[in-house]
Design a protein around this nucleic acid. Structure first.
Lengths: 146, 146
DNA sequence: AGAAACTGTATCGGTATCAGTTACGTATGG
DNA sequence: CCATACGTAACTGATACCGATACAGTTTCT
């Protein structure tokens, strides 16, 4: 999998909630409002917020006046957590299975897989340096965060 | 774009060429042989080797006895170069365009884009520590390379 | 109680991408 | 001349995604 917009949508939604100070049920933001700021469809937003809720980053409530709000401070929500919450990864592809019997054909896929895993971990580690709060201060802050 | 197998195929092909000591035209390896070691289709291999040739990593020659061979030593071919040669990237998705007029809705996409770019760069940097030669020594070497 | 707002989820259609295959023109070597 | 092999185009089937509609269940307000 992966040219998914889930991660960008999730990051945007969390930043929006942080900006709106949605830290409790009485300040919940509806999916329609979040969707309007992307812009995208409210259903797309709800598909993502449902995953974020399962990951414990936000809470949601149905019914009039319902919506989503943050369960943690924006400074404490790291983007690698967000990425994992929406099942995203820095997918570079999976190695082909390799061929039995050929000693080199058998081992290369494992080595390639190890390289991909290492790159994936490096991307996640970089994202762990960025918090949702960093997304609000200025467009360059996220890239500079260290 | 991007759950592509291009990067794994490219890495596998280069490692195979290195293993076969294909360092000159007279040791060229045909796409059929490369494909057989993945296994995949020869055309899939040629689509990738054509890109690697354009990037100057290998050379290819048509006709009987033709095929692909390396233009650089396996130790000198870094995996980030390979990834760029096949137009791959650690795709985490692209931010939605954002909404004009809303100050927060306008800036968040830029911040998200900066975060994604940073993660992508981190993945590439990690790959730059791994050479094609590292893929041959042992399956874990690639992950350990530093 | 009834209306209105909102979530979560199922489903469907349209679009895009990819792997694999076949086919063809071109180039190379015997 | 002919077999070999690359590069590329075209087609197919599979897969994934976004967006939209629909609906059941939940919550608030009057």
């Amino acid at each position: 999998m992966s040219d998914s917009q889930k991660f960008p949508v999730a990051a945007h939604a969390l930043a929006y909630l942080a900006h709106k100070d949605a830290m409790s049920a009485d300040r919940a933001v509806a999916s329609g409002e979040l969707a309007a700021s992307m812009p995208t469809n409210p259903v797309v937003v709800r598909r993502v917020t449902a995953m974020l809720a399962k990951a414990g980053l936000i809470a949601t409530r149905a019914g009039a006046g319902g919506g989503a709000w943050l369960l943690k401070n924006p400074q404490e929500i790291r983007l690698d957590t967000v990425l994992r919450a929406v099942n995203g990864c820095a997918h570079l592809g999976a190695p082909p299975p390799g061929v039995k019997g050929c000693p080199v054909g058998e081992r290369i896929p494992d080595a390639v897989r190890a390289a991909i895993t290492a790159a994936d971990a490096a991307a996640a580690e970089r994202l762990s340096l960025i918090s949702v709060a960093d997304l609000l201060v200025d467009p360059q802050a996220a890239g500079k965060a260290a």
